[in-house]
């Protein structure tokens, strides 16, 4: 134990996890080395790395990943901006809340994937349908978090602002929105995470152009387990990155809020 304690903190904190991952890798290598399963089912780690390099050097991986990310950005942008606007309106005004809450609550009950067949009929299988689908998925988390974020702003702050006779705009921009910001950012993180998995769903169900989901489906149709593995790992890493990135943003914003207080 003492030897572990001497390691730098970065490694020390990840020491056990690192061991587990190594163990998994060992297990995997052994299973494929002794041909426990056919290669078609379980590729060797070396085959996966080779497939990764091959996909990378042919540019296929970059093109797939790039087109998926472009779709996400478009869908995410449409979804979050609409979600933010509606969430803010409902948060600020009780009338708005009463008007829209039942509608959105009803629509929210549809599992996002359930929209796929309908969107295909409405928008076809080209880009529009993929972006619409992602937008729907990104819409709800941000709607709810914006709404709740605004509602969580302490009424006493608002009262104080009223005493100082803040204008509506000033009240919104200096009290309400900053107060709701951490909530909104966590909504953005959720939206982004959802978008990432929805783009894969969209691409699996509407295959018209390149994308990481399309690459994934192709790999399973062609029984290329090595490519499938590469895709799974890449999708996982991107998901982790998104989570990490927006998580950082979230902590930074809430710590700012604390000091602000």
């Amino acid at each position: 134990m003492s030897s572990i304690a001497n390691l730098p903190a970065v490694i020390r904190n990840r020491y056990h996890g690192f061991i587990s991952f190594l163990f998994l890798l060992g297990l995997w290598s052994a299973a494929s080395h002794y041909n426990l399963f056919s290669r078609e089912y379980l590729p060797t780690p070396v085959a996966v790395v080779t497939a990764f390099i091959r996909l990378l050097s042919s540019g296929q991986l970059c093109i797939s990943l790039g087109s998926s990310l472009l779709r996400i950005i478009a869908g995410f942008f449409v979804g979050t901006s609409l979600g933010f606007v509606f969430g803010a309106a409902m948060g600020v005004s009780q009338t708005m809340e009463k008007l829209f809450a039942p509608l959105f609550n009803a629509l929210r009950q549809v599992p996002v994937i359930g929209w796929i067949p309908l969107i295909i009929v409405w928008c076809g299988i080209a880009e529009t349908s993929k972006i619409t689908f992602i937008a729907i998925g990104a819409f709800f988390p941000i709607l709810i978090s914006t709404f709740e974020g605004i509602r969580s702003v302490s009424p006493s702050y608002v009262d104080v602002a009223r005493v100082f006779e803040y204008s509506r705009f000033k009240l919104l921009s200096t009290i309400v929105l900053p107060g709701a910001l951490p909530g909104i950012v966590s909504g953005i993180r959720l939206s982004m995470g959802t978008s990432w998995l929805l783009v894969v769903w969209a691409e699996i169900n509407t295959r018209s152009a390149a994308g990481i989901g399309d690459l994934l489906t192709r790999s399973s149709e062609g029984k290329k387990a090595d490519v499938a593995f590469v895709c799974i790992i890449v999708i996982g890493i991107v998901a982790c990155l998104i989570n990490e990135l927006f998580g950082q943003l979230e902590t930074r914003l809430s710590s700012w809020r604390k000091s602000y207080r």
Partner: peptide, 26 residues
């Protein structure tokens, strides 16, 4: 927790949908 959580934490972030082709092959 020390050994399993990091692995779990990675796998939980991989969207389940990504496993589809793999599961289909299997």
């Amino acid at each position: 927790e020390l050994y399993l959580y990091p692995v779990f934490n990675f796998f939980r972030q991989v969207p389940v949908v990504a496993w589809i082709p793999f599961l289909l092959i299997w």
